[in-house]
Design a protein around this nucleic acid. Sequence first.
DNA 1: CGTAATCTTGACCAACGTCAATGTTCGTGG
DNA 2: CCACGAACATTGACGTTGGTCAAGATTACG
Lengths: 242, 242
Amino acid sequence: MIPCEACGLRRKRLFRPMAPQELGRIASMKRDHLVVPAGTDVIRQGERGRAVFTLYAGWAIRYLRLPNGSRQILDVLLPGDTVGLGSALLGGHSHSVQTLTPAAFCALDGSQVAALIAEYPALGLDMLRTRLDEKHRADMRLTMLGRMGAAERIGYFLIEIYERVRRRGLATESTCPFPLRRTDVADAVGLSRVHVMRALQELRLETLAHLHGGDLIIPDVARLAGYAGYATAARVKRRALL
Amino acid sequence: MIPCEACGLRRKRLFRPMAPQELGRIASMKRDHLVVPAGTDVIRQGERGRAVFTLYAGWAIRYLRLPNGSRQILDVLLPGDTVGLGSALLGGHSHSVQTLTPAAFCALDGSQVAALIAEYPALGLDMLRTRLDEKHRADMRLTMLGRMGAAERIGYFLIEIYERVRRRGLATESTCPFPLRRTDVADAVGLSRVHVMRALQELRLETLAHLHGGDLIIPDVARLAGYAGYATAARVKRRALL
DNA sequence: CGTAATCTTGACCAACGTCAATGTTCGTGG
DNA sequence: CCACGAACATTGACGTTGGTCAAGATTACG
């Protein structure tokens, strides 16, 4: 079990530095370091659980399964993203989380989060900031589902992921890993799998973006951003481990 | 200008009681009590501003305008809802807010929010809780846009609003005020105005819901909830004024 | 009482979903 | 190293949902 003090994630520029005391307190909440293969359900919609997970390595999705069997992907989780805070503070899990690749999670005892915030208000503020930033992303995603055509939606989705991966130092100038299948893209942007194919072909023909092997290639990021109406917003430093 | 101590909103059961000190501190941040007619843009997307607004009376929408002119309504604001926390903590406004009815807002100085949370960590925790609850609502809305048909979407949208209004004590057994126009509904659920008409007719024919005058009538809430896949989640007490 | 805004409906068209057949990749066991 | 199967990608044909255009009805308001 990797101690929080030695956690590599924290060193990235994307995350705020923490005071040693804060870090020590968080370390005391660490309950597990869980390593799982691709396709594992780490959290199941409806379960009780009060653990808070930070994705340490690998990719995962947060999704909802409807009574009729269809699936909506709510978010793609990248290393450093936290999930389960809602369940810890509010009650049961309202969504599921599944790994897309082999992955490792850091599990904290969520029942202590309220106490933690009471002790270190600055942590609460940071968590609130991160939440607000994510809410902005959620607003944009809602807009893309509500008001954009198939190709633009997918373009937006792809560039958003590319930018998030890039900020974590995991992408090159024009390429980033992309372990999602066509079905996953479809369930994320609200289209059928077949129509995703058609829209991807359109993007490929216009040299805006294409998928190849497990990689996403965007020859000209600015051009795709223009096409899909994506605006790079100044982003907040996130709170790692929480 | 109504002092926070006398604010009627705080007394409703939906909101947590506050300690006198907390309340005093918040009162010291109050900058304005703004009364505006219907159709006023209180916040414009892109503006600088660091004010935090609490809707005191009336209805409003939070929306995004795309380069191509179309509009996505992100949320409907009811009395007691707070808006602008993101801008206060993160920078400029990423969305606009417009009143649907004559309305009154309480405006607080947002630049003091960080300091407020540092002083009263419990407030930060409450704000985080409220945020997490709203995020759940946002997840559900994304799902409805991505995976549901027109009539179900609108049914979901209507019942969600009805429940929120009811919890504030502003609805009767089967009726609540509903100042949105067809166009607003369309921009909220991601359909065209004409298609909203067709879907509303379907809901009316099946006696699930109908709009009349400025009112929304839902003869059998449970039946509509079943139809639209709406599940009443236990909701958090919200933080009024913030 | 008249004008503007909104609601409502019908006719037609485009976008997207479904079904089904074929190709491709990749892992597994011989 | 090859043969096989399973999962996934790809494409075409066709059906359905939802968008667009346009006209008339109703309501809100000066």
